[in-house]
Design a protein around this nucleic acid. Structure first.
Lengths: 139, 139
DNA sequence: CTACAATGATACAATTAGTACAATAAAAGG
DNA sequence: CCTTTTATTGTACTAATTGTATCATTGTAG
């Protein structure tokens, strides 16, 4: 199987900082399906060497993508694509993806022998906490 | 009697180190009775091969569980679950493990921009379905 | 000239992998 | 039986890989 090497094209004349170009191009390759959730991105050093830039520049791009929850960077392990933040997908697809996520969660909870009551109560509590935290963040 | 093979699910994108995921999942399965005191865990090498990780990673997880007195590792013999932890400790661990599972689920759902309402509704629906399915299984 | 943003250099920390070893159990030989 | 050998299992130490943090340098707008 051919390893899909990430190919980015930097443009000096664009006037955009390198790290911004990296962010943009990874994002667009993601929405175009060239790279997919679960894929591992090149290491900061590998991509830096490929692009002939300092690896801190790549790290900066990765950090931005990480903060946007688009990728997950893990010290000592690497960086991975998470999932496409649902753009304007159909309502049906949206629902199906939530359904799949929820069923995975519930199956796991039941496998661990938690009761229906425990699960629903914990979901209520956690949502409540989450909402309160969100309110505090807005202040 | 089918040998109760330990089943762990690693998630690359969770951001948690592999050894931590192993620790958490063994702990969950213990407090929920899927594995019991006295049970022998897979050898570090067997579990490592199963999970496709280096055996030192499993060994690290086992060492953490050993230090927490949850398991007993014995060079040349194997690894065994120790005695039942006191009920109140067990109950606390049980709750914590459900809480962690639920928060991972909710964080992921929110990251995908689902609303609190959508999440709680879907959990209700899925639990309802699950219950009905369980009733049918009992017949 | 000054200030600030971008990039580079260097040192660091976390995770996982590689290798050799020690303890125990099981098998083999007598 | 008892001893020796071999296999199995966890341990210790080290190395390699990866991202992070901090500060220095550069270049450019104001």
């Amino acid at each position: 199987m051919a390893e899909n090497k990430l190919t980015l094209n930097l443009d000096i004349r664009s006037g955009l900082p390198i790290y911004t170009q990296i962010v943009n191009q990874i994002q667009s390759q993601l929405v175009n399906g060239i790279i997919k959730p679960g894929d591992q991105l090149p290491t900061v050093r590998a991509l830096a060497q490929d692009l002939r830039v300092n690896f801190n520049t790549v790290a900066r791009a990765y950090r931005i993508l990480d903060e946007a929850r688009i990728i997950s960077t893990q010290q000592g392990r690497g960086t991975y694509i998470t999932e496409i933040p649902p753009p304007e997908v159909s309502e049906r697809l949206r629902r199906e993806s939530l359904e799949a996520l929820t069923q995975r969660f519930i199956n796991e909870a039941f496998r661990l022998r938690f009761s229906e009551k425990e699960v629903s109560q914990m979901v209520r509590d956690s949502l409540k906490l989450k909402k309160e935290a969100a309110v505090n963040d807005d202040e």
